[in-house]
């Protein structure tokens, strides 16, 4: 039963990281255009570096 003392906090922590990642993505507007994003993956227009 000792295993529980770490496994539960670990699972909560991992889940929490996932949740934070979701918040981050949401705030950055990554869910604003789901249809466009699914089409953009087919576009050949990209470059290796982020545009500045």
């Amino acid at each position: 039963m000792e295993a529980l003392t770490y496994s539960i906090p670990i699972s909560l922590l991992l889940g929490g990281i996932g949740l934070l990642a979701f918040f981050w993505a949401l705030r950055r507007g990554q869910f604003d255009d789901p249809k466009g994003d699914s089409e953009r993956i087919l576009s050949t227009e990209f470059d290796d570096k982020p545009k500045s």
Binding site: R28, G29, Q30, D32, D37, R40, I41, S43, E45, F46, D47, D48, K49, P50, K51, S52
Partner: peptide, 12 residues
């Protein structure tokens, strides 16, 4: 994915 998604992050 970020390079192609970039104009938005910069535009916003």
């Amino acid at each position: 994915a970020s390079p192609s998604a970039c104009p938005a992050c910069i535009a916003a």
